[in-house]
Amino acid sequence: MSGFSQIRSHTAVLNRNDVDTDQIIPARFLTTTSRQGLGKSAFADWRYLDDGEEDPSFELNQPHNRGAEILVAGRNFGCGSSREHAPWSLTDFGFKAVISSEIADIFRSNSLKNGLVPVIVDKAMHERLLAQQHDVLIDLESRTIAIMENDEPIANASFEIDNFSRFCIMQGTDQLGFLLSQMPAIEAFERARGDYEQ
């Protein structure tokens, strides 16, 4: 995972509410034991026709949405199953950020651990983003997003991301190292409970 502090890209718009992780990646693709190569299965039941060809009516197959690194999704994106295969498939597909007015808890937590930035904006900004095709600039340092026209921001908003997750994404580092550095405290906790066995 390589770190980044800014994403600038046109957006792909998937204006559907309550998109659950079963839609992001259906269960039959979860038999993998790897985290690689799941991009081709992203939105599989919406994306492909019965004969395996791409369905031209599906939003992400439309030319203006292709190649986007930012997904603008309807309200409550990522609800349902805890499968981390959902962010794995979206990053492999090419996304680095998901913007919505609401993002489900577990999906949000999983995304933060995989370099997929979950951006929650208010309703007005969300509606604006759903209706437009300009580039969007996401800046992790200042925790802001901007809609860009000719290199000028025409609308701004700030978003929340906790310092720790932000640091890890910007550094491209995972969170396990930090957790393991807490081992003395963890051992002390167990000892205090009379439950330290090593």
Partner: peptide
Amino acid sequence: IGTTEVGHVLASQC
């Protein structure tokens, strides 16, 4: 929890 966190718990119990 997600799979990354499964790894966290396996490795640290936290």
